[in-house]
Design a protein around this nucleic acid. Structure first.
Lengths: 261, 261
DNA sequence: TCCATCATGTGGTCAGACCACAGCGCGGTC
DNA sequence: GACCGCGCTGTGGTCTGACCACATGATGGA
């Protein structure tokens, strides 16, 4: 494997050596697909591959890297899972594997799985949610434009509908918060906001369905949403942030089953 | 594809119907490996699979799901990339594929790639860093224990060494901030702090090497680190948060190349 | 009793084949 | 000449079956 003529080198990738005792780090013998990932990643890190670029066909990549097509495909799957690559079948124009830019779906899947595995506690996730969204709300109050406000109003209307289902309410609720985050202008914030909401979707829906005082809760949430909207529309940044934090805390408290999992 | 006798079923997976106009959502025909992921994910979501559990052998899983082993392996790769699964070769005890819990490495890889692809701007990432770390510092000031303080002091000593290399300094710097985040007690925060630092490692190191006034910069950073440490050790939460925010902003400003990429 | 050896079961890798799909170009038809 | 249909081609998608590398644990001899 070392004499693989194509990969530049098996660079030690040692990295950190915070002290003399940190030397003799365990050797890591990479598997085939990891080497393929490294090869593609190098191209990305050096800027040789940018969003939109097409990769060589799987068969060619395999023969160039001297690995099987299966190894190449496993590497592509991983980078696809990160939202970095995308594959399309067919021929000509749109076909092939190319560099993509879809971090949000990957983040959602990632967080959803780890929340389900309890690798992150719900309180932690909610704490992160408050942190992100109060900042986003504040930013949104300063930067929001007419189109975003219209979208927010549309979502408020969906939630205000008297016959709205709990599921539809939750989806509009999610979209409302994500839209605010997007209006804040920070893509990382809005993607993480979406991912956090996606990771909480199942427990929230469960709590929504079980709760007896649904109409009361929905009423409170509606009021708070309208308050947040007005603060953002009027450009009152600090108030938008505070209302958002209060709103999220209230929502979490009203759904006690949320924390019992 | 429809008449493929092997897949159990192409269940619609429709799901949300927020309104009448949301009907007729595009059909999504999943690929084999996605179906395998869904199958494993279902087990995780329902709690049938928890951290530490062993999956059936690849060959058995393939025959049970009526797919090829390659398809199973691609699915396992993806979940491995998310830090949800891990595979070990061999036989008996430690061998096989089992449910894991290593979100941090996955988060690092993810963010590093997307920052390299400029899907997230550096300012966004730094904004997120400030948000997370100021909160972590505040939490750490309230909850820190002796062991964590000792570790922080050790890292300070590494950075204080007069002959420390710029790379070693940066690695200790990273470890210092991650240790604070960990002391804060929120795993999501500390994992994200680590991921953000990892995603910035290359640009930071580049800036470190190019900068002429290294000793001045290092001196400032050392001072600020000691200040943050004292505030945390003394339990002054607000001050720790403020100093951290100031520190990060200062570090970003001192490295102007950071924003030019 | 201990140690070397082999059998077994696991993931890791490979080669080769075929399928499904989408574009492109050729050729026939109007 | 313009249009349509059909097959050719190259792409990813999938499957099969084989073999390798590795760690364990059982087996059997010293």
């Amino acid at each position: 494997m070392v004499d693989m003529a194509n990969n530049d080198e098996v660079r030690p990738h040692r990295g950190r050596a915070t002290g003399a005792d940190a030397a003799w780090a365990p050797v890591t013998r990479s598997s085939t697909y990891e080497l393929v990932i490294d090869a593609i990643e190098d191209q990305i890190m050096t800027g040789a591959l940018v969003v939109g670029d097409l990769l060589p066909p799987e068969r060619e990549l395999a023969s160039r890297l001297r690995v099987s097509r299966a190894g190449v495909r496993e590497a592509i799957r991983v980078l696809e899972a990160y939202g970095v690559l995308r594959s399309e079948v067919g021929s000509g124009r749109g076909a092939g594997t190319f560099v993509s830019a879809l971090p949000s779906a990957a983040l959602e899947q990632f967080l959803r799985l780890h929340v389900a595995l309890s690798n992150f506690r719900l309180e932690e996730v909610i704490e992160a949610r408050i942190l992100l969204e109060r900042t986003s709300a504040s930013l949104a109050a300063e930067r929001v434009d007419a189109a975003a406000l219209a979208e927010l109003e549309r979502l408020l209307a969906v939630m205000d509908a008297p016959d709205v289902s709990r599921e539809a309410f939750n989806d509009a609720d999610t979209a409302f918060h994500v839209a605010i985050a997007r209006a804040g202008g920070n893509a990382l914030f809005s993607d993480m906001t979406g991912a956090i909401r996606a990771s909480l979707r199942a427990p929230i829906l469960e709590a929504f369905t079980k709760v007896a005082t649904w109409e009361d809760i929905a009423g409170t949430l509606r009021e708070q949403h309208h308050g947040i909207f007005r603060a953002i529309a009027d450009g009152r940044a600090d108030e938008a942030a505070e209302l958002t934090a209060t709103h999220i805390r209230a929502a979490s408290d009203m759904l006690p089953d949320l924390s019992t999992d």
